[in-house]
Simulated assay, not measured.
Amino acid sequence: MRGPGVAGYGLYLPEGRASARAIAHQFRIPESVVRDKQGLLSKRVSAPHEMPSAMALSAARRALARAHDAGVDRADIGLVAWVGSQWKDYHVWLASAFLQHRLGLRGSFAFDLSSMCTGMVFGLAMAKRFLLADDDLRAVLLVGASKESYLVRPSDPRSRWMDNFADGGVAVVVARDHARHRILGSDFLSDGSLALAVVQRGGGARFPTSTSYARAGRAYLENLLNEGRFRRQIDAVSLPNFERVIRRSVERSALPMSRVRLLVLNHMKWSFHRSILEKVGIPEERSVYLREYGHLQSADQFVGLDVALRAGTFSRGPVVMAAAGAGYVWGSTVLSWG
């Protein structure tokens, strides 16, 4: 059976790593908390000169090379969509158009999708819909990167839960008429009452400049909600919302949950990861936990898939890619891998 599917993917993982000990020292928390509660042995950290566009460009070149081997040519790419972090090289800037030019994809259309850490799972569903709706569109390039390890302020106790934020790039070529790795069902959900939980306050129209950023020497993320309210609300809604989007995406794929061979989630604290597995009835051995990578924003899902493929713990079958992102948004997309 043919249809919209993944013709190739590429990753860029910086050489730099921060160990659990280094993270603990930076955030002034016990190393045991980093390892056991946060579930981090290390995370990938880019060098100061490694820009999001450069990491995305490297990932895109690898994805295009794999897609070419699968019979999809660069000339087939009619749409380039940025699915990565909103914190790019510049503010008010189309990273997708810049990458389209650097990759030589002349004649394609480019736009930036803003869906936080659900960017890739939403991008896969969006690419499928574009390809099914437009007879002239043959392939879509989804591309993104994160440098958000630099956006966390370790001295702010309210943002220490972001100590897993890491860096890297990802790209996926989705082809219209593909025999392998087909995109199946998806489901998404938002809760805008949490929209101010994670923001970069300075630099937007409401606060064009920031003296606090100047004093800190860089921009950083902040929680503008009451800390207690945010904690209570996110704890109450996130687990059931994850369960909903995962179950609905599997149902829309006309599959029973027992057929799922791999579940790939954002990196999150280990106890919450385990709670999601229990809720949807997926055994631990059918999941990937990125304890040596951290949370690379929308790259997590294909990093996790790559880890499982390379380790030999997974080779083919239904893959559920699920994510949550600040805003707050939850999403899940199923692939029939193989």
Rank of each mutant, 00 (worst) to 15 (best):
M1H: 06
M1W: 05
V6T: 07
L11F: 10
Y12E: 10
Y12K: 07
Y12T: 08
P14A: 15
G16E: 03
A22N: 02
I23L: 04
A24W: 03
F27V: 05
R28T: 06
V33A: 14
V33R: 12
D36F: 15
R44G: 00
P48S: 06
H49V: 04
E50F: 10
M55T: 12
L64E: 00
A67Y: 00
D73G: 07
G78I: 01
V83E: 02
W87C: 06
H91A: 06
W93T: 00
S96P: 00
L105V: 01
D112F: 09
S115M: 15
A125E: 15
D135K: 12
L142V: 13
K147F: 01
L151W: 08
R158W: 06
N164C: 10
N164M: 12
F165P: 03
R176K: 08
H178F: 15
H181E: 07
L189G: 12
S193C: 09
A195F: 11
L196H: 15
A205I: 07
A205C: 03
T211R: 15
A219P: 06
L224Y: 06
N226T: 11
E227K: 12
G228M: 08
F230E: 04
R231H: 07
I234E: 06
L239E: 09
E243L: 04
R244S: 09
S249L: 03
V250G: 01
S253N: 03
V260F: 06
H267F: 06
M268P: 02
W270V: 01
I276N: 09
I282R: 12
P283N: 13
R286A: 08
V288F: 09
S298L: 11
D300S: 08
A308R: 01
A311S: 13
R316K: 10
P318Q: 02
A322W: 04
A324D: 05
G331A: 06
V334G: 10
